[in-house]
């Protein structure tokens, strides 16, 4: 993406650089949401259904971590993955994998906190029924997650929104390397720093359209799912 081009031209001419950047952005953010869902949904449900000392404190911390500043998460992962850090030998710093890890750290608290609230609300409705049927703890968690699945889509979308919008963490751990770790948000930051504000805002509009499309797809899938589940 060089020279005097506009974002619209890049889209219309099918600029391969632009498509690679869009693809990487989606790959990183969707992978992070997938990893965060695998961790966050069961974790949130577990906290919702169990009682133990310090539970309230954990809920407060989890809710607070929804506001974890991306640059702080990025810096922590950077120090962990740096060659001078404990996981330096993995050689992951400045790769897409490092970006997925950083965004997973950002998204997991959002998914876990929203899942906890959703499942806890549902639990109040289901408690007597599940107790009467003598369902064990794992069975309860599975039942409630399954029955809350359509509401949980919103939690996943909130997580995706966070991941797709952030630039602080992936800039630090990915390094904004051309053709390798450059995403929509880091490109926008770069074009802004080059003073090419029209291209930067054009890329911003493309990013917003992609996020709207993903949300529309999720909404359609949810509606279709609800109809089948009837």
């Amino acid at each position: 993406m060089t020279g005097d081009t506009s974002a619209l031209q890049l889209v219309l001419t099918g600029d391969p650089g632009l498509y690679a950047i869009v693809w990487l952005s989606l790959l990183v953010s969707l992978s992070a949401v997938a990893c965060a869902a695998v961790i966050g949904v069961p974790l949130g449900a577990l906290i919702a259904l169990t009682r133990f000392p310090g539970r309230e404190a954990i809920i407060v911390v989890l809710n607070a971590l929804m506001g974890l500043p991306p640059v702080v998460a990025g810096l922590a992962i950077y120090l962990l993955l740096s060659r001078s850090g404990p996981l330096g030998s993995w050689g992951l710093l400045f790769t897409p994998a490092a970006m997925i890890i950083a965004q997973t750290v950002l998204v997991t608290p959002i998914i876990a906190a929203l899942t906890r609230q959703t499942v806890e609300d549902l639990w109040l409705e289901y408690r007597d029924e599940l107790a009467a049927l003598d369902v064990g703890p794992i069975g309860r968690i599975a039942t409630l997650i399954w029955d809350a699945r359509f509401s949980l889509v919103t939690a996943l979308l909130a997580g995706f929104g966070r991941a797709a919008a952030e630039v602080g963490a992936i800039m630090v751990v990915g390094g904004n390397i051309n053709n390798f770790t450059r995403t929509m948000t880091t490109s926008i930051a770069l074009e802004t720093s080059k003073g090419d504000l029209p291209l930067a805002i054009g890329l911003g509009i493309i990013l917003i359209m992609i996020i709207v499309m993903i949300n529309a797809l999720a909404w359609t899938a949810r509606r279709a799912g609800e109809r089948y589940a009837g």
Binding site: L27, V28, L30, S31, A34, C35, A37, V38, P96, A97, I100
Partner: peptide, 8 residues
């Protein structure tokens, strides 16, 4: 999810 992670 796994496929996309492995590609990444």
């Amino acid at each position: 999810a796994l496929l996309s992670a492995s590609i990444a």
